[in-house]
Simulated scan of single mutants.
Amino acid sequence: MKKQKPEHVSQADWDAVDSPPLDSSFLAKMRPAAAEHPSFPPKVRGPQAQVKKTPISIRLDEAVVSSFRATGRGWQSRVNQVLRDWLKEHGNAI
């Protein structure tokens, strides 16, 4: 399988790299970096914030969902905000 050059890499840079193919014997020899370099610090996640949202299943009109999705990333948060605003307007403070 021939590798394809990414558009952001110049042809000269692409030609200057001589990478061996990653065949199954090469991949079988690979080991985790921590096993090969024990001095690397371990990956530790910090304290996690409590979940503040509850996953639900809800049926909405296709037009409503597609309109919100068309606004791009974060569309579910915008739906949440619209619902919060409605609750405030109707005297159901959160």
Rank of each mutant, 00 (worst) to 15 (best):
R31K: 13
V17S: 07
K3M: 05
K53A: 12
D85H: 10
P42Q: 04
R73T: 11
R45Y: 10
R78M: 01
S66K: 11
P55T: 07
G74Y: 00
A93N: 13
V17D: 02
Q50R: 10
A16C: 09
D23H: 09
H8R: 14
S24H: 11
Q76E: 07
G72V: 02
S25M: 07
Q76G: 15
S66T: 15
V51Y: 01
G72W: 00
E62N: 11
F26S: 06
H90N: 12
V51D: 08
K43S: 03
E7D: 15
M30T: 05
S39Q: 09
V17N: 04
W14R: 15
W86T: 02
W75V: 00
I94M: 14
S10A: 10
W75I: 02
K88D: 13
G74F: 01
D13R: 15
V44H: 14
P21N: 13
D61A: 13
H90D: 00
E62T: 09
R73L: 07
V82N: 02
R59H: 06
Q76L: 13
K2L: 05
A63C: 11
A63M: 03
G72T: 12
S67K: 09
K88N: 05
E7W: 11
D61F: 09
A70I: 02
D23W: 13
Q48I: 11
R31H: 04
I58S: 01
S39A: 10
P47D: 13
S67N: 11
A16V: 03
V64G: 03
I94N: 05
N80Q: 00
D18R: 15
N80W: 03
H90M: 06
D15S: 13
P47H: 01
S57A: 07
V79T: 02
D18V: 06
R45E: 02
